[in-house]
């Protein structure tokens, strides 16, 4: 019987985990241990609901409500001097509880502090665009849409950015295989030559460890190359790896290894 693989997460899995193994945690500390973060958190808490806040690896992480994101980032930019949105993207938790986790990585250059603002949305919901606050969110949100299919409300140009416009599927979802689906496998052939050319071109060879000594087309015959389609018998002559033909070349000086010089010091 074939082993069952869950359809909602087709990424690589550890093939063995000790049943008594309990993964340790990266230590979290209270926000009060850092006074700058504590002041920032108090300012945010005065206006918005903060569900959870802690410091992990020198950066504060706060969880807020999804519809507050524009307000929180506006407050942080205008009053708390977090002037740059370094990064934003999503994490796929669809297999676990059908949600996406969205994070915004903020940087304050005057305080030298970084805060990660996070919230959860359900599958199919959209986030509010912060493109009006930070122009960098323009491309980040497009990338998030491209990779996860999460749309942003009020975004001026909500289209794919990395994949072609006519691509199907969102590659960074856990349900999307690393090597692509059926559509991805034939994308370039269908687009350039049409579906009827599939048979002539053949499927992609994804097995990188495959070596076939009877294959006259690919790279298994280094040094013993033969014309395409030759029947391999096993006693092919070794091909010469010389730069020039034996008898010399018309109008060109013969290259001799003896006459060449080797430079010891490249910086001479």
């Amino acid at each position: 019987m074939r082993a069952y693989t869950p359809k909602d997460d087709v990424q690589a899995k550890a093939y063995y985990t000790d049943r008594y193994y309990v993964a340790p945690q990266v230590p979290k500390s209270e926000v009060e241990t850092d006074e700058v973060f504590a002041a920032d958190l108090a300012a945010i808490k005065a206006r918005f609901e903060v569900k959870e806040a802690y410091i992990q690896v020198e950066q504060m992480v706060i969880f807020i409500n999804p519809h507050d994101i524009y307000g929180v980032l506006e407050l942080m930019r205008d009053e708390l001097a977090y002037t740059q949105l370094s990064e934003m993207s999503a994490i796929d938790w669809l297999a676990k509880d059908n949600t996406f986790e969205i994070f915004y990585q903020m940087l304050s250059m005057t305080k030298r502090k970084r805060i990660r603002v996070k919230f959860f949305i359900n599958n199919g919901e959209a986030v509010d665009s912060v493109e009006k606050l930070f122009r960098s969110a323009d491309w980040s949100e497009r990338e998030m849409f491209d990779m996860f299919g999460i749309e942003a409300n009020n975004h001026p140009f909500m289209k794919r950015i990395l994949m072609p416009y006519d691509w199907q599927g969102h590659p960074l979802l856990k349900s999307y295989p690393l090597e692509g689906d059926e559509f991805a496998a034939w994308y370039e052939v269908d687009k350039i030559y049409g579906k009827e050319a599939r048979e002539a071109i053949g499927p992609e060879i994804r097995d990188t460890a495959r070596v076939d000594r009877y294959d006259s087309e690919r790279f298994a015959r280094l040094g013993f190359e033969v014309p395409k389609g030759t029947k391999i018998t096993g006693d092919e002559p070794r091909n010469s790896q010389e730069y020039q033909e034996e008898g010399g070349v018309f109008l060109i000086k013969k290259y001799t290894k003896e006459a060449s010089t080797i430079v010891d010091d490249p910086q001479r």
Binding site: A23, P24, V26, K28, Q56, V57, Q105, R114
Partner: peptide, 20 residues
Amino acid sequence: QGMRPPVGEVYVPTESPKGE
């Protein structure tokens, strides 16, 4: 099997020749 780091998340910036 590979190393198994603790549960958690981290964002680390470095100054590459192009920027952060």
